[in-house]
Computed example of a mutant assay.
Amino acid sequence: MELQPARDWATHPEGFQSRVAFAAAHVVADPLRDNGPGQPAAIDWDSTLAFRQHLFDHGLGVAEAMDTAQRNMGLDWPAVQELISRSATQAQAAGARIASGAGTDHVTEAADLAAVTRAYAEQVAFVESTGSQVIVMASRHLAQVATSAEDYLSVYDEILRQVSRPVILHWLGTMFDPHLEGYWGSTDIDTATATFLELVTRHADRVDGVKVSLLSAEHEVSLRAALPDGVRLYTGDDYNYPELIRGDGTRHSDALLGAFAAIAPAASAALAALDAGDHSAYEAEMAPTLPLSRLVFAPPTWFYKTGIAFLSWLSGHQPGFTMVGGLQSARPVPHLAEVFALANDARLFPDPDLAAHRLGLWLQAQGAGA
């Protein structure tokens, strides 16, 4: 494999006009502290915040404390609170957008709908207190206790009545979290979508947009057309985002993607091309990133965070390839070696020699090097 030369990617800190774009960012674990399974998250704050500045520099907002940051996979509530507080302060100083996840994962048990509602309300209030926009995340607790679509609607109705500014609603599919089976009250996608649309329509003035992570372009296009006027569709489709963001000439999706954390410079260049009305340049910038994203998010999809952190380390954004909860072990050697190869093809490494050196050290440590 030939090592591709570094590309001089332009920064774009002023953001974009034609699309709203968030990158869902990962957290950098402190490699010198215990981040084993079941341990409280020990975070390298300097590297974590520097990575967010990297995203801001390329014009992307940060979607904070989402599943990319290992919510429900090692990131505990005290760490979530500190992460959102620090990132919100940083975003305000940079004049950048930030939206942060509010869920129910700080409670060990929620016995009924009232308990789920209280848990949601507590996290929503915290996120709003930091100045961040709220992303209302899907709740494992709600999936456990709800028995009907009406149960989902009653909880979300109450939360949306309490918010002080429009939120983003997140529909996370089972490919990202199997515990969310039957969310919105049905395993039938059309029935669940009807319930979701009923909720959004009821509260259109309190919903900035919806983030849909079902990895189905066909479903997203259909849902996008059915949303009330003024409600955005933030694509969470890491398999099909170029076509969905480009749109069909009538409607388009905005972006809230974990993939954008891995491909920030290329995503920035593509969105700048859209602003300039240059669709050919947009396609050319996006095309090399899609094979990489599809590999990073390959099944079991919930382990995609490992690829995001691996690329961050190879790119020099963090000192070590260590993750909260020991999740660096979640992908096999051949998978991560191919991640390197596709990122190299896309010329995403700011220092290719460093990336190749780190890959070699890692392969040797895995027993796969020369």
Rank of each mutant, 00 (worst) to 15 (best):
Asp57Ser: 14
Gly61Trp: 08
Gln364Val: 08
Pro40Ala: 00
Glu285Thr: 11
Glu198Trp: 12
Asp208Pro: 03
Arg331Gly: 00
Arg118Pro: 00
Asn35Met: 06
Tyr120Pro: 01
Asp177Ser: 14
Thr89Val: 13
Val124Asp: 00
Ser315Leu: 10
Ser222Gly: 06
Glu181Phe: 13
Ile263Gly: 09
Gly316Phe: 09
Leu361Asn: 10
Gln318Asp: 03
Asn35Asp: 03
Ser47Trp: 08
Thr250Met: 08
Gly277Arg: 00
Thr235Trp: 02
Gly61Cys: 05
Leu223Glu: 15
Asn72His: 12
Gly236Lys: 04
Ala6Trp: 13
Ala96Trp: 05
Val210Leu: 01
Ala255Tyr: 06
Phe51Asn: 14
Ser148Asn: 05
Val155Ala: 04
Ser85Phe: 09
Phe196Ile: 13
Lys305Ser: 11
Trp184Asp: 08
Leu359Glu: 05
Ala343Leu: 06
Trp77Asp: 01
Ala6Val: 11
Trp184His: 09
Glu338His: 12
Arg347Val: 08
Asn344Gly: 10
Ala194Val: 07
Ala114Asn: 11
Ala225Thr: 01
Val296Ser: 02
Pro291Phe: 02
Gly249Phe: 10
Ala281Gln: 03
Ala281Asp: 11
Val62Cys: 12
Trp313Arg: 01
Ala10Asp: 07
Gly15Thr: 06
Asp190Ile: 08
Ala272Val: 11
Ala264Tyr: 02
Ala287Pro: 00
Asp76His: 13
Ala192Asp: 09
Leu256Phe: 14
Ala25Ile: 02
Gln123Tyr: 08
Leu336Ile: 05
Asp46Asn: 11
Thr187Trp: 06
Ile308Asn: 02
Val212Cys: 07
Ala115His: 05
Phe196Met: 15
Gly182Thr: 12
Ala341Lys: 07
Leu214Lys: 07
Ser18Phe: 09
Ile168Ala: 07
Ser329Val: 05
Val324Ile: 15
Ala94Pro: 14
Gln39Phe: 05
His357Ile: 09
Glu218Ile: 04
Leu223Phe: 06
Ser213Tyr: 01
Asp157Thr: 11
Gly258Tyr: 03
Trp362Ile: 15
Ala115Arg: 06
Thr289Leu: 06
Ala272Asp: 03
Leu60Lys: 10
Asp67His: 15
Ile43Tyr: 04
Val200Glu: 13
Thr289Val: 08
Glu243Ala: 14
Gln133Met: 08
Ala269Ser: 13
Val155Arg: 03
Ala259Trp: 06
Pro5Gln: 10
Ala21Leu: 13
Ala225Val: 02
Gln4Ser: 14
Tyr120Gly: 03
Glu150Pro: 00
Leu290Trp: 02
Thr48Ile: 09
Asp177Ile: 11
Ala261Val: 02
Val163Arg: 01
Asp151His: 07
Met137Lys: 05
Arg165Cys: 07
Ala50Met: 11
Trp9Thr: 15
Leu292Gln: 01
Leu292Phe: 05
Ile308Val: 15
Gln81Gly: 10
Leu215Cys: 14
Ala267Thr: 04
Gly325Val: 12
Arg232Lys: 14
Asp188Gln: 10
Leu3Cys: 12
Leu290His: 08
Ala121Gly: 12
Ser100Thr: 06
Met323Cys: 14
Arg165Trp: 07
Arg358Asp: 03
Ala88Trp: 04
Thr306Trp: 04
Arg246His: 14
Pro40Ser: 02
